[in-house]
Amino acid sequence: MRVDISCNYLVRVVTIILFKLCKDFQCQFHFGYSLEVNTRVTVQELCSVTIPCAFTADDQKSFTNSSGYWNSRHHIIVASTNANVKGSKPNFLITGNPNKGDCTLTITDAKKEDSGMYYFEFEGPVRYNYQEKSITVNVTDSPKESEVVINSVHDCGSMNYTIIALIASGNIIAISLIAVGLYFLLKRLIIENKIGGGSRTKEYKVGDVNKSETLYQGLTVQTESVYHDIKSSS
Rank of each mutant, 00 (worst) to 15 (best):
C22H: 05
Q28I: 07
T50W: 02
V14C: 12
F31L: 15
T64D: 12
S62T: 14
V13K: 11
S62A: 09
R40N: 07
N65P: 01
F19L: 15
E36M: 03
D24L: 15
T39E: 11
I51M: 08
V37R: 00
Q26K: 11
I51S: 01
F55R: 01
T39N: 13
Y9F: 11
A54Y: 03
Q60R: 14
N65F: 09
C47P: 03
I16C: 04
C7Q: 11
D59A: 12
Y9H: 07
Y9C: 04
Y9R: 11
A54E: 12
F29W: 13
Q28T: 09
V13A: 06
T15C: 06
L10Q: 08
K23S: 08
D58C: 09
F19D: 07
Q28W: 00
L46N: 13
F63A: 01
K20Q: 05
I5S: 11
Q26D: 09
S6R: 14
H30W: 10
F25L: 12
L10N: 08
Q28F: 05
C7E: 15
P52G: 01
T56A: 14
T56Y: 01
A57Y: 01
D58P: 02
C27S: 08
F19W: 14
D58S: 15
Q28H: 05
S66M: 05
S62F: 05
L10D: 04
F19R: 10
L10W: 04
D24C: 06
T15K: 13
I16K: 14
E45V: 04
F29M: 07
I51T: 02
L46P: 00
C53F: 01
D59Y: 07
Q26T: 13
V3Y: 08
C53K: 02
C7K: 14
T56C: 07
S66G: 04
T64A: 09
C7G: 04
S66W: 01
L18F: 13
Y9E: 13
T50A: 10
T64K: 15
C47A: 13
I17N: 03
S66Q: 08
Q60W: 00
K23D: 03
F25T: 08
L10C: 04
D58Y: 09
F55Q: 01
V41R: 00
C22W: 00
C22E: 08
K61E: 06
F31V: 15
E36W: 07
L18M: 15
T15A: 12
L35H: 00
S48C: 13
C22R: 09
K23C: 07
T39F: 02
Y9D: 11
V37C: 01
K61V: 06
R12C: 01
E45Y: 02
V49G: 04
L10A: 09
V37S: 02
S48Q: 05
L10Y: 12
V11F: 03
D4H: 07
